[in-house]
Computed example of a mutant assay.
Amino acid sequence: MSFRQQHLQALDSLTPASFEAAALALFRHQAAQCLPYREYLTQLGRKADRIERLTDIPFLPIEFFKTHEVRTLPLEWEPQELYLSSGTTLQQRSRHFVREPQLYRRNAARIFEQYYGPLTDWIFLALLPSYLEQGHSSLVAMVEHFAAASGQEQPAFFLRNHAALLQAISKARQVPGRRIMLIGVSYALLDLVAEYGAAPALQNLTVLETGGMKGRRREMIREELHAELQQAFGPAGIHSEYGMTELLSQAYSLGDGRFHAPTQLRILLRDPSDPFALSETRPDGAINVIDLANVDSCAFIETKDLARMHPDGSFEVLGRMDNSDIRGCNQLA
């Protein structure tokens, strides 16, 4: 059995106690088999066999996904899907070459159900216009899978057709035993609110915002955005997803502004001014993320997001580091 097969099998029984051993084994594998990561470690003068703790691992700057094919050997495997980060025509988009699309879909569904229960309990409706128009979106692929697996009859995507969305919500309310989740990029949800205000049709939904103004609206801190959305959708907290093109796993905020990560995803914080000053106990800083589902690319990524950690392991996303470009989903200034 290959290392890849063994690693993916181990993910099914992963626990917080076994995370570090699994992460270190994957690090040594990718340090040898992921060519851009191997070259990066070589340039740093870091040897994989001398890395003994998670905080010793050099994390790959996320910009590498824009400039390199971040893939593990053997390179004979052909990507079955390509996910691209959202961005303007002037921005270079990150690329995630996906060897096994069903791995992404199964993993995303398992994480969702950990926090929200079976997909079949839900009807999924989405306002993700920029992701649909630009194409190659991992978020769109995830929502498509959720909607198909739920068995819902309603279409999931509405681009900018708010009237059709409200009709779909009304129809979904007639399906017994189903809850309704509206998934939307921030500016699209605000556009809906601007057109319909606190319409009765918008009440009592589970609203999951995925961040991102994409230059279409004024940037807002998360608390301000959620307060404005709650004026239309009701007093229940606005949910959020933290994920990105370069990852295969997601964290969720269940309405309180704090994200909770599944077992295979771990957030470590670093000094924003020193990429190698990493700590498992730091209360705030820039995010380094370990995604053990990223077996075919790189599981150890240095992001440009800022966060605050809480004693229970949850985290708040505070915004972006200075001079970093506007990325895909889930980032607010």
Rank of each mutant, 00 (worst) to 15 (best):
A141S: 12
L159R: 13
G151A: 11
Q154Y: 08
A148D: 15
F157E: 06
G151L: 11
E133D: 11
N161L: 04
S130C: 11
L128F: 03
P155S: 12
H162P: 04
L127M: 05
A126W: 05
E153L: 15
A147H: 06
G135P: 00
M142Y: 03
Y131P: 00
L159S: 02
A156K: 04
A147S: 09
Q167L: 12
L159I: 10
A149M: 15
R160F: 10
Q152F: 08
V140G: 07
V140F: 05
N161M: 09
A156W: 05
Q167T: 12
F157D: 10
L127T: 03
Y131V: 04
Q167P: 01
S150W: 07
L159H: 15
E133M: 09
F157H: 07
A147I: 05
A148L: 11
A148E: 10
F146Y: 14
A156Y: 03
Q154P: 04
L159M: 07
Q167K: 12
Q154L: 11
L159T: 05
L128I: 08
A163C: 01
A156E: 07
L165E: 04
E133A: 06
L166S: 12
G135I: 06
L166G: 04
L128N: 06
F158V: 02
G135Y: 01
S150H: 14
A168L: 12
V143S: 02
F146C: 05
L132W: 03
M142K: 14
F146K: 06
L127W: 02
E133Y: 02
N161F: 00
L127D: 02
